[in-house]
């Protein structure tokens, strides 16, 4: 679809949210929670944190929540009765006020869950989510979106994108059919935009720090470079913070929970950073030490995914680095791979 440009007044944003809600669309948006910013259901614009660079966690939970029921069953004398769980049981939702890297992060999840037999738990929720992103007027030292093919005004993955073009006006880019549909809900608040408007003037300048093709090639060649991975990860303590806040990490676990008569199987976030992730019951572990697990993190995103799924598993949002308790900075580590590895 050809993109359409409109103008929306800041002062009309509360009305826009009201319209979504009154027409039955739940709205998910960033919300201040003490020092962190969560993505949560909101009832009005007041609670939405539009002033922050990025929410602490990514927006992936809109389609891939940390805990999700995939099976339900009851036990009786005759055996087990399964009560089908409908993967498509979710509402059309507006994901509002996220950043371009959140929106484009879904393309990694789309690839993983869509490949082969498709995972409808994710796909149908994603399909029913309309993403309204805000371009970034500022960035910080952790951001490196422009080095991985994105950018502060990148529209890939967004259905609508808002850019602040003056104190009281937002440029609205209608990018997809889904976006078009959502824009009809507040069409009366929109006015025509001057098509000559230069969006780049209003967004942050994020410097490219490395050449992606080269990082991918060098990462791909580095499986056996134990020294590199050890050097980079010596301070890594093997938690799940980086993977859990990451918009593209998709790894999961299943766990059953039941009382005497009924039970559920839950799908839970998991991370390649945990030592248990690959531990065989025999005690053997193919990724025994943290440097091997760090290698997996980087190689999965920058070697395996580009080759197998034709998508780089990183949007350069820098969340992992902000969340890391020991300041493992992925931008710095990728730059080091670019500089240190020769192929």
């Amino acid at each position: 679809m050809e993109k359409e440009l409109k103008i929306l007044k800041y002062s009309d944003l509360p009305k826009m949210i009201e319209k979504f809600i009154s027409q039955g669309y739940p709205v998910l948006a960033p919300v201040h929670k003490g020092k962190i910013v969560e993505i949560e259901y909101v009832q009005s614009l007041d609670s939405i944190a539009l002033d922050v660079l990025l929410s602490t966690q990514s927006a992936k939970k809109a389609a891939f929540p940390k805990v999700e029921k995939v099976l339900e069953y009851t036990m009786n004398k005759a055996g087990v009765v399964q009560h089908p769980v409908d993967p498509a049981d979710s509402k059309e939702t507006i994901l509002f006020g996220v950043r371009p890297c959140d929106a484009s992060g879904f393309k990694s999840l789309d690839a993983i869950f869509g490949e082969g037999p498709s995972d409808q738990f994710y796909l149908s929720k994603k399909e029913k989510t309309t993403i309204i992103s805000f371009s970034c007027p500022v960035a910080d030292e952790y951001c490196f979106c422009t080095s991985v093919g994105g950018g502060p005004g990148n529209t890939a993955g967004s259905d609508l994108q808002f850019t602040s073009v003056s104190k009281d006006e937002l440029l609205v880019e209608i990018l997809t059919e889904k976006g078009k549909k959502a824009s009809r809900i507040f069409a009366d608040l929109l006015t025509e935009a001057n098509s000559a408007i230069d969006k780049t003037k209003f967004i942050a300048d994020v410097k490219v720090v490395f050449d992606l093709d080269s990082v991918v090639a060098k990462t791909t060649a580095s499986f056996g470079n134990a020294e590199l991975w050890l050097e980079q990860s010596l301070r890594c303590i093997g938690c799940g913070a980086c993977a859990f806040v990451c918009p593209t990490c998709a790894c999961f676990d299943f766990q059953d929970e039941q009382d005497t008569k009924k039970g559920v199987r839950l799908r839970l976030w998991d991370s390649c950073g945990f030592s248990l992730f690959t531990l065989h019951t025999s005690g053997h572990n193919p990724r025994e030490v943290q440097s091997q697990r760090w290698r997996q993190r980087i190689m999965h995103k920058f070697a395996y995914m580009p080759e197998q799924l034709k998508v780089v598993g990183c949007e350069g949002c820098g969340r992992c680095s902000r969340a890391c308790p020991v300041d493992m900075n992925i931008k710095e580590h990728l730059t080091a791979i670019r500089e240190q590895v020769t192929v």
Partner: peptide, 13 residues
């Protein structure tokens, strides 16, 4: 043999 959960190339382990 490697530890598995999904069997479908999705759970990542």
């Amino acid at each position: 043999e490697n530890r598995m959960k999904c069997g479908l190339g999705k759970c990542g382990r």
